[in-house]
């Protein structure tokens, strides 16, 4: 199977080695080895329940928060296994941020939402600058700059999602994990998120889970197709959507699955 290899020139932002995840007796991820290239968008696609979210959560130790989940294997970040004993999962999640399907702002002001992370990790003197820079990067600044003290829950769904992205960016992560970040949004808000992803990738590495094949085709450089916990095919997005090598991938991307 063709796969994406970058380790030779040291460009992988993240690398997994035989990662397995079990929920009790159910093995949800069955030994996945893959590399996520730096400053690229990687899309994870596959039918519901195939393990996309589970795999994504391995990338920043979010599975630690799921009591029944047991992870084995290695996830290398800057050459270090994120699951090594001495690694602090909170620091992992600062450097590898996550954005969820449903925007989940805190019921606080717009400003406080973005300032939350920086305050948690120390009280930076330039907090206003960090908040402004994060909101600009999330393409939300112009829409909220005059109402920073308004409650974040008063924003539209699309704005709330961009606020959550700003909140993740405020702690200067290197990688952003996004689990169906646009699936709860209308087409215009969704297009804005896609646009944003394409801007963010100049500075960040992005892994996005999406059910929308066209979205994966539009925003990603590389696409990984998962099926029942296995990585079936991982290749250049053009290849996956025009001429995949695996019949199974072909059946899935053409909607002939099952």
């Amino acid at each position: 199977m063709p796969t994406i290899r970058v380790s030779a020139n040291g460009e992988a932002a993240l690398e997994t080695r035989d990662v397995r995840v079990r929920y009790g007796n159910n093995e949800a991820i069955k030994g996945i080895t893959m590399e996520i290239p730096r400053k690229r968008v990687v899309a994870l696609i596959g039918p519901s329940g195939c393990g996309k979210s589970t795999l994504l959560r391995c990338f920043n130790r979010m599975n630690d928060l799921v009591p029944s989940a047991a992870v084995t294997g290695e996830v290398l970040f800057h050459g270090e296994n994120l699951y090594a004993d001495h690694v602090d999962p909170v620091e992992v999640r600062r450097r590898i941020g996550m954005v969820f399907q449903k925007p989940n702002p805190f019921p606080k002001s717009i400003y406080d939402n973005v300032a939350f992370g920086p305050r948690l990790y120390g009280r930076p003197p330039d907090l206003d600058d960090i908040v402004e820079r994060s909101l600009r990067q999330a393409a939300l600044w112009d829409e909220v700059k005059d109402r920073m003290n308004d409650n974040a829950l008063g924003l539209s769904g699309g704005q709330q999602q961009r606020l959550c992205i700003a909140r993740a960016l405020a702690v200067t992560p290197e990688i952003l994990l996004m689990d169906e970040p646009a699936s709860a949004l209308d087409p215009i808000a969704s297009a804005k998120i896609e646009e944003l992803i394409q801007q963010l990738v100049e500075h960040y590495t992005i892994v996005i889970v999406t059910h929308n094949m066209q979205q994966a085709a539009r925003v990603s450089h590389y696409t990984a197709y998962l099926y029942i916990g296995e990585l079936i095919e991982y290749d250049d997005t053009n290849t996956i959507f025009t001429a995949p090598h695996e019949k199974h991938t072909e059946d899935y991307v053409t909607g002939r699955f099952g």
């Binding site: 063709p2 796969t3 994406i4 290239p37 290749d235 290849t239 001429a243």
Partner: peptide, 10 residues
Amino acid sequence: DVETEGEFDQ
């Protein structure tokens, strides 16, 4: 042919 194995630059 459309093989891209190992190719990283766009």
